[in-house]
C-alpha cells in the first residue's frame, strides 16, 4: 500500500458519512455497508450508473441518498451508460462548455448478477475502450433482489431459491477478478465492508488512477444468505479469515495479496453461520462437501504461496 495513504489506521476512517440514510436496503446489508464506505472516500463529485439489482432501489422517486448524481440504465449495459456520460463530459470539456469544476467521476454500480453475467460483455467492452471509470460490484453471490436465485457468483454448496435441494449449487463461483485482470485494466481489487481500512485504502488508490478500475465487494446478505443481520460484519470478517474471500489487488500488471490469513480459520466457521449452508451441517454433516470446499480454499492459498514466494 502507498505510504502516503491518509488512512494509516482505523482512527483515520471517516467519522461522518456522505451517503444519506433512508434507502430501502435490508437492515444489515453488507452491500450497502461497502457502498457507503466507498462513497465516504469517493465523495459526491460522482455520477453513479446503475444496473438492475438490489441497489436500483437506492433511488426511488422522489428520494435519493446520493450527494452527486445517478442514472439507472438496465441490467446489461451500465458500463455503456458510463461510456456515454464520460464521453459526453469529455466532449463538453474539450469545447470549454463545462469547466473542470463541473466534471464528475463516473462510477458503475451493479450486483453480481449483472457483473458476472448479463453485463460482462458490456464490461469487457468498456475495458477494451480503456474507459476512465470506476466499477463497484456488490457481490452477494446470487440474484438477491429477486429472492436469491443462483448466479454465476454463487459458491459451491450454497442453496439458493433455484437450488433448494441436495448440496445446492454444484458449480463453482466464477473468478471474475481474474477475468477482469486478464483484460489488463488499470486496477482490480477485492474488498469487503467488514475490512473498512483495507477498503478505504483501495478506494483512495483507485481514485488517483485513470482508466478502468474495479472494486469487487463481497456483500454478506442477511436476507439471501440466511443469517441474523447483526452477524453481517462477523460473517464478512470470517470470509476473509477463512480465506474464502481473498483480499487482493491487480495493479501495475501485478497481482498482490493484501492479507494472507495465517493460519486459515476453518471454512466451516464461515459456512455454519449461514442458512444457505445449513444443509452441510444438518441433519448430519456433509463431510465430503465441506472437505471439498476447504480443499479448494487450501489449494488457492497454496498457489498464492508459490506465486508470492511467501
Amino acid at each position: 500500500m502507498s505510504p502516503k495513504s491518509q488512512f494509516s489506521g482505523m482512527k483515520d476512517l471517516p467519522k461522518t458519512h456522505l451517503l444519506a440514510p433512508g434507502s430501502a436496503m435490508c437492515a444489515g446489508c453488507g452491500g450497502l455497508e461497502a457502498v457507503r464506505e466507498i462513497y465516504d472516500v469517493l465523495g459526491g463529485k460522482t455520477v453513479f450508473v446503475n444496473a438492475a439489482g438490489c441497489m436500483t432501489l437506492m433511488s426511488v422517486y422522489p428520494y435519493t441518498p446520493f450527494r452527486g448524481s445517478w442514472l439507472y440504465t438496465a441490467m446489461a449495459s451500465a458500463p455503456a451508460g458510463a461510456q456515454g456520460i464520460r464521453d459526453a463530459l469529455d466532449i463538453l470539456k474539450s469545447h470549454d462548455r463545462i469547466g473542470e469544476d463541473e466534471d464528475l467521476d463516473v462510477v458503475v454500480l451493479t450486483g453480481d448478477g449483472s457483473a458476472y453475467g448479463m453485463g460482462l460483455s458490456s464490461t469487457s467492452g468498456a475495458i477494451d475502450r480503456d474507459l476512465d471509470f470506476l466499477y463497484v460490484i456488490y457481490d452477494n453471490e446470487g440474484y438477491g433482489n429477486t429472492g436469491q436465485q443462483t448466479s454465476a457468483a454463487t459458491p459451491h454448496g450454497a442453496r439458493t431459491a433455484t437450488a433448494t435441494s441436495g448440496i445446492g449449487v454444484a458449480g463453482r463461483k466464477k473468478d471474475l477478478f481474474s477475468i477482469l485482470a486478464a483484460h489488463e485494466p488499470a486496477y482490480v481489487a477485492t474488498v469487503i465492508g467488514a475490512e473498512p481500512l483495507d477498503l478505504a485504502r483501495k478506494v483512495e488508490r483507485a481514485k488517483t488512477m485513470s482508466g478502468p478500475r474495479f472494486l469487487i465487494a463481497l456483500s454478506p446478505c442477511p436476507t439471501g444468505w440466511g443469517f441474523d443481520p447483526q452477524l453481517s460484519v462477523e460473517i464478512g470478517k470470517l470470509a476473509v479469515k477463512s480465506g474464502a474471500w481473498p483480499l487482493k489487488e491487480y495493479v501495475d500488471g501485478r497481482l498482490v495479496h493484501n492479507r494472507v490469513p495465517k493460519p486459515l480459520v476453518p471454512v466451516e466457521e464461515y459456512l455454519k453461520r449461514q442458512g444457505r449452508f445449513r444443509h452441510l451441517f444438518e441433519p448430519r454433516k456433509d463431510e465430503f462437501t465441506l472437505m471439498d470446499i476447504q480443499a479448494q480454499i487450501d489449494a488457492y492459498w497454496a498457489g498464492v504461496m508459490d506465486h508470492d514466494g511467501a
Binding site: A20, Y63, T64
Partner: peptide
C-alpha cells in the same frame, strides 16, 4: 430527482 441526499426524509 433534482436534489441531493433527500432520502433523509424516508424514516427507515
Amino acid at each position: 430527482i433534482h436534489a441531493a441526499a433527500n432520502s433523509v426524509q424516508v424514516r427507515t
